[in-house]
């Protein structure tokens, strides 16, 4: 099937319900290899749930997801294999508190990929260098700033050599002056050709780095398009309303 090869990530008609509340009401989304897409939208519209369904931290109720030609939602799929190919960056970092930066990055290589200690250390140091934190290799999470912690968590995800990176509001828990260092790392990644799906409220970043913007609300994808088109000339009234609310808040040049 030509479709399967063209897209790295394919989501078809995804539904997810928590108790009475349906959080995703039929979401379809496609990502080509090397593509970076940002998902924006108000809080509580299922953006994070969508990401968590992609690596099955949450199980979707209905709908199918493919990573390349592997169906992630198939009942027989080896989840631990799939998850190694999908890097996940959390809003609140979730670094392993009892391990230093190097061990945070190295643990998956040792325990999941069964590398030797030397191989794992080399690769982990390489990833820490990539996010500019090799000098913090022996620091523990609580000795690092929020921005540094998030960069270590990006390194931890990259070390598994994923095909796809998912970012769940990676800068929302950060002080304003620390946001830049994380976004710079993400921008470099995008330029290097990593396929990325980013839930974010950083519209300026989304606009300058992402290939496409997806606007989500109340469990639906309302609108999807090129950054210029979606920001300057949104088709849907809801998108317009959301963007104008944000530009009131942050000033014109942010949105």
């Amino acid at each position: 099937m030509a479709m399967a090869n063209e897209f790295l990530l394919r989501i078809e008609n995804l539904h997810k319900r928590f108790g009475q509340e349906e959080v995703l009401k039929g979401v379809s989304l496609h990502l080509k290899p090397g593509e970076t897409k940002a998902i924006i939208g108000p809080s509580g519209t299922g953006k994070s749930t969508l990401l968590r369904c992609i690596n099955r931290l949450n199980d979707p109720d209905q709908g199918r997801i493919w990573l390349g030609s592997t169906e992630i939602t198939a009942p027989t799929v080896d989840l631990n294999k799939i998850r190694q190919q999908i890097g996940f960056v959390f809003q609140d970092f979730n670094l392993f508190q009892h391990l230093n930066a190097l061990d945070n990055v190295r643990l998956g290589l040792l325990k999941v990929k069964n590398m030797t200690k030397d191989q794992a250390t080399d690769l982990a140091m390489h990833e820490l260098r990539r996010v500019g934190l090799e000098h913090k290799a022996s620091a523990y999470p609580s000795q690092l700033s929020g921005g540094q912690q998030q960069r270590v968590s990006i390194a931890r995800a990259l070390a598994m050599e994923p095909k796809l990176m998912l970012f769940d509001e990676p800068t929302s828990a950060l002080d304003p002056e620390l946001i830049g260092e994380v976004l710079r790392v993400m921008k470099t990644l995008a330029e290097e050709g990593m396929t990325m799906l980013i839930v974010t409220h950083e519209l300026g970043f989304a606009r300058s780095v992402c290939d496409e913007i997806v606007f989500m609300e109340k469990g639906y994808i309302v609108e999807e398009g090129l950054p210029e088109q979606l920001f300057n000339n949104p088709k849907q009234p809801r998108t317009q309303e959301f963007l104008s609310k944000l530009s009131e808040l942050y000033g014109e040049n942010q949105a």
């Binding site: 631990n80 799939i82 996940f88 979730n94 670094l95 643990l107 999941v112 931890r156 995800a157």
Partner: peptide
């Protein structure tokens, strides 16, 4: 121990048992 610790361990492909063994218990025992 925050549930995010297990989520992070699962997200890099650890099994539930590995997450408990390498992430939860070392922190819980301390």
């Amino acid at each position: 121990i925050s549930v995010g610790q297990i989520a992070a361990a699962r997200a890099i492909g650890m099994t539930r048992l590995q997450a408990i063994r390498h992430i939860v218990l070392p922190q819980a025992f301390r």
